[in-house]
Amino acid sequence: MSENRASLGSKLALAVFTAIFLSPFFICILMAVKSKQETSKGILSLPERIHWENFTSAIEKARILLSMKNSILITVCSVIIIVLVAATAAYAIGRRYHNKFYRFYETLLVSSMMLPFQVIMVPVYRMYKELNLLNTRTGAVIMISGLAVAYSTVMMIGFVRGIPLELEEAAQIEGAGRFRIFFSIIFPLLKPILATVATLQFLGVWNEFNVSILLLQKEAIKTIPMQQYVFFGAYGADYNTAFAAAVITMIPVIVIFLILQKQVVAGMTAGAVKG
Protein backbone atom coordinates (compact mmCIF):
# COMPACT_ATOMS: atom_id res chain seq x y z
CA MET A 1 0.00 0.00 0.00
CA SER A 2 3.04 2.27 0.24
CA GLU A 3 2.41 3.44 -3.33
CA ASN A 4 -0.79 5.05 -2.26
CA ARG A 5 1.00 7.57 -0.10
CA ALA A 6 1.73 11.01 -1.47
CA SER A 7 5.32 11.32 -2.73
CA LEU A 8 7.73 13.83 -1.23
CA GLY A 9 7.71 15.92 -4.39
CA SER A 10 3.94 16.24 -4.50
CA LYS A 11 3.84 17.00 -0.77
CA LEU A 12 6.33 19.81 -1.32
CA ALA A 13 4.33 21.21 -4.24
CA LEU A 14 1.19 21.01 -2.14
CA ALA A 15 2.88 22.96 0.66
CA VAL A 16 3.90 25.71 -1.79
CA PHE A 17 0.37 25.97 -3.24
CA THR A 18 -1.09 26.07 0.26
CA ALA A 19 1.24 28.92 1.24
CA ILE A 20 0.28 30.88 -1.90
CA PHE A 21 -3.41 30.25 -1.26
CA LEU A 22 -3.21 31.42 2.33
CA SER A 23 -1.03 34.49 1.69
CA PRO A 24 -3.86 36.87 0.65
CA PHE A 25 -5.67 36.16 3.93
CA PHE A 26 -2.48 36.77 5.88
CA ILE A 27 -1.89 40.05 4.05
CA CYS A 28 -5.51 41.16 4.54
CA ILE A 29 -5.26 40.69 8.29
CA LEU A 30 -1.80 42.27 8.45
CA MET A 31 -2.92 45.32 6.48
CA ALA A 32 -6.07 45.65 8.54
CA VAL A 33 -4.18 46.05 11.82
CA LYS A 34 -1.41 48.40 10.61
CA SER A 35 -1.23 52.18 10.59
CA LYS A 36 -0.57 54.19 7.44
CA GLN A 37 3.02 54.92 8.46
CA GLU A 38 3.73 51.27 9.14
CA THR A 39 2.28 50.36 5.77
CA SER A 40 4.54 52.80 3.96
CA LYS A 41 7.53 50.79 5.21
CA GLY A 42 6.39 47.89 3.05
CA ILE A 43 3.52 45.50 2.62
CA LEU A 44 5.04 42.88 4.95
CA SER A 45 6.19 45.18 7.74
CA LEU A 46 4.79 44.24 11.13
CA PRO A 47 2.80 46.67 13.29
CA GLU A 48 3.97 47.69 16.77
CA ARG A 49 0.47 47.35 18.11
CA ILE A 50 -2.86 46.34 16.68
CA HIS A 51 -4.59 49.40 15.26
CA TRP A 52 -8.21 48.65 16.08
CA GLU A 53 -9.16 52.13 14.93
CA ASN A 54 -8.93 50.85 11.32
CA PHE A 55 -11.96 48.72 12.00
CA THR A 56 -14.00 51.52 13.54
CA SER A 57 -13.14 53.85 10.67
CA ALA A 58 -13.99 51.07 8.22
CA ILE A 59 -17.41 50.76 9.74
CA GLU A 60 -17.93 54.51 9.34
CA LYS A 61 -16.16 55.30 6.05
CA ALA A 62 -16.88 52.16 4.07
CA ARG A 63 -20.45 52.22 5.35
CA ILE A 64 -20.19 48.56 6.18
CA LEU A 65 -23.29 48.45 8.33
CA LEU A 66 -25.41 49.87 5.52
CA SER A 67 -24.06 47.55 2.84
CA MET A 68 -24.16 44.65 5.28
CA LYS A 69 -27.85 45.34 5.87
CA ASN A 70 -28.47 45.48 2.09
CA SER A 71 -26.51 42.28 1.52
CA ILE A 72 -28.28 40.41 4.30
CA LEU A 73 -31.74 41.55 3.15
CA ILE A 74 -31.09 40.73 -0.50
CA THR A 75 -29.41 37.40 0.26
CA VAL A 76 -32.02 36.14 2.74
CA CYS A 77 -34.99 37.12 0.53
CA SER A 78 -33.37 35.73 -2.63
CA VAL A 79 -32.40 32.40 -1.07
CA ILE A 80 -35.90 31.87 0.37
CA ILE A 81 -37.52 32.69 -2.97
CA ILE A 82 -35.07 30.52 -4.91
CA VAL A 83 -35.57 27.50 -2.63
CA LEU A 84 -39.39 27.77 -2.60
CA VAL A 85 -39.80 28.44 -6.32
CA ALA A 86 -37.29 25.78 -7.33
CA ALA A 87 -38.72 23.15 -4.96
CA THR A 88 -42.30 23.63 -6.13
CA ALA A 89 -41.28 23.61 -9.80
CA ALA A 90 -39.07 20.57 -9.29
CA TYR A 91 -42.01 18.80 -7.64
CA ALA A 92 -44.30 19.48 -10.61
CA ILE A 93 -41.65 18.50 -13.18
CA GLY A 94 -40.47 15.46 -11.23
CA ARG A 95 -44.00 14.10 -10.78
CA ARG A 96 -45.11 14.79 -14.36
CA TYR A 97 -41.85 13.65 -15.92
CA HIS A 98 -43.54 11.68 -18.70
CA ASN A 99 -45.47 14.77 -19.83
CA LYS A 100 -43.98 16.62 -22.82
CA PHE A 101 -44.85 20.10 -21.54
CA TYR A 102 -42.97 19.65 -18.26
CA ARG A 103 -40.03 18.04 -20.03
CA PHE A 104 -39.86 20.95 -22.46
CA TYR A 105 -39.75 23.36 -19.54
CA GLU A 106 -36.93 21.34 -18.00
CA THR A 107 -34.97 21.56 -21.29
CA LEU A 108 -35.60 25.31 -21.32
CA LEU A 109 -34.20 25.63 -17.79
CA VAL A 110 -31.13 23.56 -18.65
CA SER A 111 -30.34 25.53 -21.80
CA SER A 112 -30.74 28.84 -19.98
CA MET A 113 -27.85 27.78 -17.74
CA MET A 114 -25.55 28.10 -20.78
CA LEU A 115 -26.72 31.66 -21.41
CA PRO A 116 -24.04 34.28 -20.67
CA PHE A 117 -25.42 37.10 -18.51
CA GLN A 118 -24.29 39.68 -21.07
CA VAL A 119 -27.03 38.53 -23.46
CA ILE A 120 -29.80 39.75 -21.17
CA MET A 121 -27.87 42.62 -19.60
CA VAL A 122 -29.05 45.31 -22.04
CA PRO A 123 -32.73 44.23 -22.20
CA VAL A 124 -32.93 43.74 -18.42
CA TYR A 125 -31.60 47.26 -17.91
CA ARG A 126 -34.18 48.61 -20.34
CA MET A 127 -37.02 46.63 -18.75
CA TYR A 128 -36.06 47.77 -15.24
CA LYS A 129 -35.82 51.37 -16.36
CA GLU A 130 -39.33 51.25 -17.79
CA LEU A 131 -40.75 49.53 -14.72
CA ASN A 132 -38.92 51.91 -12.33
CA LEU A 133 -37.22 48.94 -10.68
CA LEU A 134 -33.67 50.29 -11.06
CA ASN A 135 -31.93 50.92 -7.72
CA THR A 136 -34.47 48.98 -5.68
CA ARG A 137 -33.75 46.02 -3.44
CA THR A 138 -36.96 44.35 -4.62
CA GLY A 139 -35.83 44.58 -8.22
CA ALA A 140 -32.45 43.11 -7.37
CA VAL A 141 -34.02 40.25 -5.40
CA ILE A 142 -36.36 39.40 -8.28
CA MET A 143 -33.59 39.36 -10.89
CA ILE A 144 -31.04 37.51 -8.74
CA SER A 145 -33.62 34.86 -7.82
CA GLY A 146 -34.88 34.55 -11.38
CA LEU A 147 -31.39 33.91 -12.71
CA ALA A 148 -30.66 31.27 -10.05
CA VAL A 149 -33.93 29.34 -10.31
CA ALA A 150 -32.97 27.23 -13.34
CA TYR A 151 -29.87 25.69 -11.79
CA SER A 152 -31.55 25.05 -8.44
CA THR A 153 -34.61 23.44 -10.02
CA VAL A 154 -32.57 21.13 -12.22
CA MET A 155 -30.58 20.02 -9.14
CA MET A 156 -33.80 19.09 -7.30
CA ILE A 157 -35.75 17.24 -10.01
CA GLY A 158 -33.79 14.01 -9.58
CA PHE A 159 -34.43 14.08 -5.84
CA VAL A 160 -38.18 14.52 -6.28
CA ARG A 161 -38.23 11.57 -8.66
CA GLY A 162 -36.47 9.49 -6.03
CA ILE A 163 -39.30 9.94 -3.51
CA PRO A 164 -41.70 6.95 -3.76
CA LEU A 165 -45.15 7.85 -5.03
CA GLU A 166 -46.75 5.52 -2.45
CA LEU A 167 -46.01 8.05 0.29
CA GLU A 168 -48.21 10.57 -1.46
CA GLU A 169 -50.94 8.12 -2.37
CA ALA A 170 -51.41 7.14 1.26
CA ALA A 171 -51.95 10.77 2.21
CA GLN A 172 -54.24 11.28 -0.77
CA ILE A 173 -56.52 8.46 0.36
CA GLU A 174 -56.79 10.20 3.69
CA GLY A 175 -58.03 13.22 1.81
CA ALA A 176 -54.97 15.49 1.88
CA GLY A 177 -54.77 18.10 -0.89
CA ARG A 178 -51.77 18.61 -3.14
CA PHE A 179 -50.44 21.54 -1.10
CA ARG A 180 -50.64 19.64 2.16
CA ILE A 181 -48.95 16.66 0.53
CA PHE A 182 -46.17 18.88 -0.74
CA PHE A 183 -45.49 20.76 2.47
CA SER A 184 -45.96 17.89 4.92
CA ILE A 185 -44.40 15.03 2.94
CA ILE A 186 -42.27 16.17 -0.01
CA PHE A 187 -40.69 19.31 1.41
CA PRO A 188 -39.33 17.62 4.57
CA LEU A 189 -37.95 14.72 2.50
CA LEU A 190 -36.14 17.17 0.23
CA LYS A 191 -34.25 18.65 3.19
CA PRO A 192 -30.73 17.45 2.21
CA ILE A 193 -30.92 18.87 -1.31
CA LEU A 194 -32.68 22.02 -0.07
CA ALA A 195 -29.81 22.62 2.36
CA THR A 196 -27.28 22.10 -0.42
CA VAL A 197 -29.05 24.43 -2.83
CA ALA A 198 -29.59 27.06 -0.12
CA THR A 199 -25.90 26.99 0.82
CA LEU A 200 -24.65 27.29 -2.76
CA GLN A 201 -27.13 30.07 -3.49
CA PHE A 202 -26.22 31.86 -0.26
CA LEU A 203 -22.59 32.07 -1.40
CA GLY A 204 -23.61 32.99 -4.94
CA VAL A 205 -26.00 35.78 -3.94
CA TRP A 206 -23.76 37.13 -1.19
CA ASN A 207 -20.94 37.59 -3.72
CA GLU A 208 -23.22 38.52 -6.64
CA PHE A 209 -21.75 41.21 -8.88
CA ASN A 210 -23.17 41.12 -12.45
CA VAL A 211 -26.74 42.00 -11.53
CA SER A 212 -25.72 44.38 -8.73
CA ILE A 213 -23.45 46.53 -10.86
CA LEU A 214 -26.18 46.74 -13.49
CA LEU A 215 -29.14 47.47 -11.23
CA LEU A 216 -27.82 48.86 -7.92
CA GLN A 217 -25.96 52.06 -8.63
CA LYS A 218 -27.16 54.30 -5.81
CA GLU A 219 -25.17 54.55 -2.61
CA ALA A 220 -28.02 53.64 -0.26
CA ILE A 221 -28.77 50.22 -1.76
CA LYS A 222 -25.25 48.98 -2.51
CA THR A 223 -24.36 45.46 -1.40
CA ILE A 224 -21.00 44.51 0.09
CA PRO A 225 -19.30 43.57 -3.22
CA MET A 226 -20.57 46.80 -4.78
CA GLN A 227 -19.38 48.85 -1.81
CA GLN A 228 -15.98 47.19 -2.06
CA TYR A 229 -15.87 47.91 -5.78
CA VAL A 230 -16.40 51.60 -5.09
CA PHE A 231 -14.29 51.82 -1.95
CA PHE A 232 -11.20 49.97 -3.20
CA GLY A 233 -11.47 51.59 -6.59
CA ALA A 234 -11.56 55.13 -5.21
CA TYR A 235 -8.57 57.27 -6.06
CA GLY A 236 -6.03 57.44 -3.22
CA ALA A 237 -7.93 54.84 -1.25
CA ASP A 238 -7.06 54.44 2.40
CA TYR A 239 -5.87 50.87 2.13
CA ASN A 240 -5.70 50.05 5.83
CA THR A 241 -9.34 51.00 6.24
CA ALA A 242 -10.21 49.14 3.03
CA PHE A 243 -8.54 45.96 4.26
CA ALA A 244 -10.15 46.30 7.68
CA ALA A 245 -13.47 46.51 5.86
CA ALA A 246 -12.51 43.47 3.79
CA VAL A 247 -11.68 41.45 6.93
CA ILE A 248 -14.96 42.40 8.62
CA THR A 249 -16.98 41.34 5.60
CA MET A 250 -14.94 38.17 5.01
CA ILE A 251 -15.34 36.73 8.50
CA PRO A 252 -19.09 35.93 8.47
CA VAL A 253 -19.03 34.36 5.02
CA ILE A 254 -15.94 32.26 5.79
CA VAL A 255 -17.42 31.06 9.08
CA ILE A 256 -20.66 30.08 7.35
CA PHE A 257 -18.69 28.43 4.56
CA LEU A 258 -16.70 26.34 7.04
CA ILE A 259 -19.84 25.27 8.92
CA LEU A 260 -21.63 24.34 5.68
CA GLN A 261 -18.60 22.96 3.81
CA LYS A 262 -20.22 19.54 3.51
CA GLN A 263 -23.25 21.05 1.77
CA VAL A 264 -21.07 23.02 -0.61
CA VAL A 265 -19.09 19.94 -1.61
CA ALA A 266 -22.30 17.96 -2.05
CA GLY A 267 -23.74 20.67 -4.25
CA MET A 268 -20.71 21.22 -6.44
CA THR A 269 -20.10 17.53 -7.02
CA ALA A 270 -23.76 16.61 -7.61
CA GLY A 271 -23.27 16.49 -11.37
CA ALA A 272 -19.86 14.83 -11.32
CA VAL A 273 -20.79 11.71 -9.45
CA LYS A 274 -23.83 11.06 -11.58
CA GLY A 275 -21.65 11.43 -14.70
Binding site: F17, S23, F209, Q228, F232, V253, Q261, V264
Partner: peptide
Protein backbone atom coordinates in the same frame (compact mmCIF):
# COMPACT_ATOMS: atom_id res chain seq x y z
CA UNK B 1 -10.17 23.67 3.37
CA UNK B 2 -7.37 26.03 2.32
CA UNK B 3 -8.17 25.46 -1.34
CA UNK B 4 -11.93 25.65 -0.80
CA UNK B 5 -12.11 28.88 1.21
CA UNK B 6 -11.38 31.33 -1.67
CA UNK B 7 -14.66 30.09 -3.18
CA UNK B 8 -16.40 32.11 -0.46
CA UNK B 9 -14.63 35.33 -1.51
CA UNK B 10 -16.28 37.54 -4.13
CA UNK B 11 -14.49 38.10 -7.44
CA UNK B 12 -14.34 41.81 -6.65
CA UNK B 13 -12.61 41.40 -3.31
CA UNK B 14 -10.27 38.72 -4.70
CA UNK B 15 -9.26 41.10 -7.49
CA UNK B 16 -8.64 44.04 -5.19
CA UNK B 17 -6.60 42.06 -2.68
CA UNK B 18 -4.44 40.54 -5.42
CA UNK B 19 -4.14 43.89 -7.18
CA UNK B 20 -2.70 45.32 -4.00
CA UNK B 21 -0.34 42.36 -3.58
CA UNK B 22 0.67 42.74 -7.22
CA UNK B 23 1.60 46.40 -6.98
CA UNK B 24 3.20 46.20 -3.52
CA UNK B 25 4.84 42.79 -3.34
Amino acid sequence: TTFFIPLAISAVLASFVWKYIDSNL
